[in-house]
Write a protein that binds this DNA or RNA. Structure first.
Lengths: 147, 147
DNA sequence: TTGAAAATATTGAATATTCAAGAATTGAAG
DNA sequence: CTTCAATTCTTGAATATTCAATATTTTCAA
């Protein structure tokens, strides 16, 4: 069994570092694909979450897309300017703002999904089907056990 | 075998998303521990890499600690102010700047290592020894296959 | 019912990061 | 040699993120 990192272990033996490194690499690849549509990764996440057609509050959305509230607010401002999404005040709780994807946002989202799917296909090609699904399973389980 | 994500799959089925989510969670935990010493995660990485006592050029260091060059330059400026590290011009190639950890930096690094080790121990407790080492193995292999 | 506390989203100032350009040095071809 | 391209690091301006404070609405206990 792998030993845990000790005082003198290189940083590459720390789980936190390996996660950061892998995330950086994969995120860069995705970023570079999505740049074809001029859209940052976070905006793809937002459009994807909103693509279920239901309204999502800013709080829900911030959790789902891994951004904190003020950052999300400002990104949504930009997306509203680009007519990709729109705000509606929640009639049941007027503190909340419900976000929806516009038709334009939905069309863009489909193209972004294709780019993201093709990235994942590319990873599976190099890295293997079995490793990919095993890694996903372990990541899900790590996330569960950490929250 | 797990199916790859399709147009309508939730974002949680994408490897890129799972990596981002896991990284965010684990990084936050580490950040919260290291804040006890008032040090951001990136500074721990820098001190750890420099703790071998060898000089590392800014370029090397930027790769190793997952920061791009200008960001690293500015972080190093702060750490020089705090007397944690110092710059030496490389005598063999005067374009390069070699970075070294000061004694103060080395002492701080030991305390930070302990905090990081205790975090990893905590993860292993909840998540399991076997899962942790398997996850590390898969991450290393993903990084290899992606670079 | 009222008033204080909690929840939700946004704003503005402070901070940090990134992009593009610059300065210094080296390498290498003519 | 000499000059021109490549490498390395830093800087300054533009951009983005974060922290703390604010405004609004809801909840709930007295």
């Amino acid at each position: 069994m792998a030993k845990p990192p000790s005082q003198n272990s290189p940083i590459t033996e720390h789980l936190a570092y390996l996660l950061a490194q892998a995330n950086r690499e994969i995120n860069r690849q995705l970023e570079s694909r999505l740049s074809q549509e001029g859209v940052p990764v976070e905006q793809w996440r937002i459009l994807k979450v909103l693509s279920d057609g239901n309204g999502h509050s800013m709080g829900e959305l911030a959790d789902a897309v891994l951004l904190n509230h003020p950052t999300l607010t400002k990104m949504i401002d930009r997306m509203v300017s680009d007519a990709l999404v729109y705000r509606v005040q929640d009639p049941d709780d007027r503190r909340k703002v419900l976000m929806f994807s516009s038709d334009r946002g939905k069309i863009l989202c489909k193209r972004l999904n294709s780019l993201a799917m093709s990235q994942e296909a590319h990873i599976v090609e190099n890295y293997g089907d079995k490793s990919t699904s095993e890694l996903k399973r372990l990541l899900e389980s790590l996330i569960d056990s950490s929250s």
